[in-house]
Simulated assay, not measured.
Amino acid sequence: MPAPVNRFKAALAAGQMQYGCWAGFGDAYPTEVMSTAGFDWLVIDGEHAPNDIRSIMAQLQVLEGKPDSHPVVRLPMGEAWLIKQALDIGAQTLLIPMVESAEQARDLVRAMRYPPEGIRGSGAALARASRFSAIPDYIRTANDQMCLLVQVETVKGIAALDDILAVEGVDGVFIGPSDLAADMGHRGDSAQPEVRAVIKDALGRIAASDKAAGILAVDHDTAVTYRDWGAQFLAVGIDVVLLARAARDLAARWTKG
Score class of each variant (00 low, 15 high):
Val167Met: 00
Ser69Gln: 13
Ala197Trp: 13
Phe25Lys: 08
Val109Arg: 02
Ile96Phe: 01
Leu216Asp: 03
Ala49Gln: 04
Phe8Met: 11
Glu64Leu: 10
Ile83Asp: 01
Ala252Val: 13
Ser130Cys: 13
Phe174Gly: 00
Ala235Gln: 13
Ala247Val: 15
Asp68Ile: 12
Gln92His: 09
Gln151Met: 14
Leu42Glu: 02
Asp144Arg: 14
Ala207Ser: 13
Gly188His: 13
Gly157Leu: 00
Lys9His: 07
Lys66Thr: 12
Gln232Thr: 14
Ala37Thr: 11
Trp81Leu: 12
Gly214Tyr: 00
Arg113Lys: 15
Val33Tyr: 14
Ala160Gly: 06
Leu165Asp: 01
Leu95Ser: 01
Ser133Gln: 13
Ala86His: 03
Ala197Cys: 09
Phe174Asn: 00
Val170Pro: 02
Met34Ala: 07
Gln16Glu: 15
Tyr29Glu: 11
Glu168Thr: 14
Val33Phe: 13
Ala166Asp: 09
Arg113Phe: 14
Pro177Ser: 07
Met98Gln: 09
Leu126Lys: 14
Met184Asp: 09
Glu103Arg: 01
Ala235Phe: 09
Gln192Pro: 09
Thr141Leu: 05
Ala142Lys: 05
Thr154Cys: 06
Ala252Cys: 14
Val198Asp: 02
Ala105Cys: 08
Arg106Glu: 01
Met1Thr: 15
Asp239Gly: 02
Trp81Met: 10
Trp22Ser: 04
Arg106Val: 06
Pro136His: 12
Glu100Val: 04
Val43Ile: 14
Leu82Cys: 05
Ile56His: 01
Val62Cys: 03
Leu250Asp: 12
Met77Lys: 13
Thr225Glu: 10
Ala208Asn: 08
Ser130Gln: 06
Glu168Gln: 08
Ala191His: 14
Cys21Trp: 08
Val73Ala: 03
Trp254Glu: 07
Val62Arg: 03
Gly26Asp: 03
Thr141Asp: 05
Val236Tyr: 00
Ala251Val: 14
Ala181Phe: 05
Arg245Gly: 10
Asp68Thr: 08
Asn143Asp: 11
Leu42Ile: 09
Ile83Ser: 00
Tyr138Pro: 02
Asp239Phe: 00
Arg248Leu: 14
Val43Ser: 03
Val236Phe: 02
Ala58His: 11
Trp41Ala: 03
Gly169Val: 09
Cys147Asp: 02
Ala207Val: 11
Ile238Thr: 07
Leu60Ala: 02
Ala124Leu: 11
His220Cys: 04
Gly230Ile: 09
Val152Ala: 00
Ser178Lys: 15
Pro177Leu: 09
Gly157Asp: 01
Trp81Gln: 07
Ser133His: 15
Ala231Tyr: 05
Trp229Val: 07
Arg227Gln: 15
Pro30Arg: 11
Val218Gln: 09
Ala197Phe: 15
Gly257Lys: 15
Gln151Tyr: 08
Tyr29Gly: 11
Leu165Phe: 04
Asp210Ile: 12
Asp107Ile: 08
Val170Tyr: 04
Leu108Arg: 01
Ala217Gly: 10
Asp201Cys: 10
Ala208Trp: 06
Val99Gly: 02
Thr222His: 13
Gln232Asp: 05
Phe39Pro: 01
Ala91Pro: 03
Gly121Cys: 09
Ala191Cys: 08
Leu180Trp: 08
Ala86Phe: 04
Leu243Trp: 10
Gln61Gly: 07
Arg196Phe: 12
Asn143Ala: 10
Ala217Arg: 04
Ile135Arg: 14
Ala252Ser: 15
Gly38Met: 02
Ala182Arg: 08
Thr141Phe: 07
Ala58Thr: 06
Ala207Pro: 05
Pro30Ser: 08
Thr36Arg: 15
Ala23His: 04
Asp228Gly: 14
Gln92Gly: 02
Met77His: 12
Gln151Asn: 07
